[in-house]
Design a protein around this nucleic acid. Structure first.
Length: 276
DNA sequence: AATCGTTCCTGATAGC
DNA sequence: TGCTATCAGGAACGAT
């Protein structure tokens, strides 16, 4: 499932292939995934537009077009963006394909079809922007701003990390991994954390996310959500996973079995001995 | 204003 | 064997 490191990996690879390119065609096989748009009108509005810049906002992929318009894609759980230099076989779950004037195409592939796409013409850009919280890899990431957000929240630590309006980009895998490295129990209320624990979060959140970017993301299991980058290759961070998906297996630090609980309907994995 | 529960979707898996 | 029920997950949405 693409979280910040996976989306960052994707946009870095997309920049090599797509910036400066002009969209020559758009094929839409699942119109319902286009939000706030009549999908029928999307191709004619996008054809001829040049990709000026590609950036990431939380887990959103944002394409800035040369005329001031914006294309926004969110991959949710199973979305993938796969580049092809030449002809390709359209797969069963290819939902939208973007073609480019100087050759090549980008397939939006999404098994569960929960991903979303959105086109904003120049006049509408101001009306809509993905609402995301602190960016852990930006200069705006400071101990003071994190402390302030934590003090004003009654959420448990896991839910706090997952809340995109608090911190942008952390999903289920990295939330568990970060809390393990900070030795914080996922059910602790954030506004009851010690200063040392908040400092640990402040340092470990960008550390873990940066490390995962270096490893080009996490590709776990062989299920629908298994991450692939733009060139259809796996990441390497799964080799560094300490707790996620390891229920019942021994903690690498102390040997006691990793525990799985549900918080807000999501699985959390942690070591009951190492995390307090 | 902050937080909670429901909904979207489909392949894999468990249970009968 | 073949069917049905449940689960996984992020975020928009409406309710509290």
């Amino acid at each position: 499932m693409p979280e910040l490191p996976e989306v960052e990996t994707i946009i870095r690879q997309l920049r090599e292939k797509v910036v400066g390119q002009v969209i020559s065609n758009v094929q839409i096989f699942r119109p319902s995934q286009w939000k706030l748009n009549d999908a029928n009108e999307v191709p004619e509005k996008l054809i001829g537009k040049q990709i000026h810049r590609i950036r990431r906002q939380g887990k959103y992929i944002v394409f800035d077009l040369s005329d001031g318009g914006v294309l926004i894609i969110h991959l949710r759980m199973t979305g993938k963006l796969i580049w092809s230099d030449d002809d390709f076989e359209r797969e069963k779950y290819t939902r939208t394909v973007f073609y480019f004037a100087s050759g090549g195409s980008l397939q939006f592939h999404d098994t569960r079809a929960l991903g979303t796409l959105l086109f904003l013409p120049p006049d509408d850009v101001e009306k809509y922007s993905p609402v995301v919280g602190l960016e852990p890899l930006d200069e705006s990431w400071t101990l003071e701003t994190l402390q302030e957000r934590i003090k004003n929240s009654k959420l448990d630590a896991k839910s706090f990390l997952m809340d995109q309006k608090k911190i942008a980009g952390i999903g289920n895998i990295y939330a568990s991994e970060i809390l393990f490295r900070c030795q914080i129990h996922p059910e602790r209320r954030v506004n009851e954390l010690t200063d040392a624990e908040i400092k640990s979060l402040y340092e470990q959140i960008p550390f873990v996310l940066n490390l995962a970017v270096e490893k080009m993301g996490t590709s776990l299991g062989d299920g629908q959500g298994n991450f692939r980058s733009v060139y259809n290759i796996e990441g390497e961070f799964q080799k560094l996973i300490r707790v996620y998906g390891r229920e019942g297996e021994p903690c690498f630090e102390c040997g006691s079995p990793i525990i799985r609980i549900k918080q807000k309907g999501r699985s959390s994995y942690f070591c009951g001995k190492c995390q307090r």
